[in-house]
């Protein structure tokens, strides 16, 4: 466990809790893409199938349970409890345009042609692009609430920190995970534009506005 990976996981947990906090306290899913949250649910379920078959550590299992349960809770809040506040008209990204390619790629590029490994690779590829509906929604609505931008910053930072972890592991342990690294770089690059807006606007106390 490198420091970067721990920082990455904590940033990930922060993001998930920030989102739950925002929806719960404002009793509103306004500005939040339900499709992104649905795909995150798929990401965690398909990645953590080994939750009951292989025990790595208490930390590992706890985080897996936390990620799965928090993402299910978030989807529940958006599509059921606060359904009336869900802004479906701006959440128009076609999920199948990312789910199908991720599945096809997982069938081609995986570590073993087994259900578990294909499911794991699918999860990794899907996670890389799962944020697209949310980023689309921010550009469509033209802005994002402050807490939503902090959520996105924490979420984008988690995989960026994992990249540092992978560099660290390659340097000290001499091996790396091509599928996770490739997808992790794509995932972090997709936040590029958002990070720019975040650092030039939100940090200076202004609202995140996507300039028309």
């Amino acid at each position: 466990m490198t420091l970067f990976r721990l920082a990455g996981d904590l940033s990930h947990v922060l993001a998930i809790l920030l989102l739950l906090y925002k929806i719960w306290t404002t009793k509103s899913a306004a500005g939040i893409s339900g499709k992104t949250q649905l795909m995150f649910c798929m990401v965690y379920v398909t990645r953590y199938l080994d939750l009951f078959t292989s025990f790595i550590s208490v930390y590992n299992s706890t985080m897996k349970v936390l990620f799965i349960s928090a993402s299910v809770a978030t989807v529940y809040l958006i599509y059921f409890k606060f359904k009336a506040t869900y802004d479906g008209n701006h959440d128009t990204f076609r999920m199948e345009f990312v789910i199908v390619p991720a599945l096809i790629l997982a069938l081609i590029w995986n570590y073993a042609f087994t259900f578990f490994e294909i499911s794991w690779a699918f999860s990794i590829f899907l996670e890389a692009v799962a944020i697209l509906p949310q980023l689309f929604m921010v550009t469509k609505t033209g802005e994002a609430e402050n807490i939503t931008s902090h959520y996105l910053f924490a979420l984008g930072s988690y995989r960026a920190l994992y990249i540092l972890n992978w560099i660290d592991r390659y340097y000290f342990e001499g091996h790396w995970d091509p599928i996770a690294v490739t997808a992790g770089i794509v995932q972090t690059v997709l936040y590029g534009d958002f990070f720019y807006l975040y650092f030039t606007r939100v940090i200076k106390g202004r609202k995140l506005q996507v300039l028309p």
Binding site: R5, D9, H12, D50, S54, I56, N60, M63, K64, F67, Y111, A112, W120, I124, Y162, N165, R169, E173, H175, W176, D177, P178, I179, A180
Partner: peptide, 10 residues
């Protein structure tokens, strides 16, 4: 099959 490290990462 010595799987790469990814199975110990989240």
């Amino acid at each position: 099959l010595n799987l790469p490290s990814h199975h110990d990462e989240l």
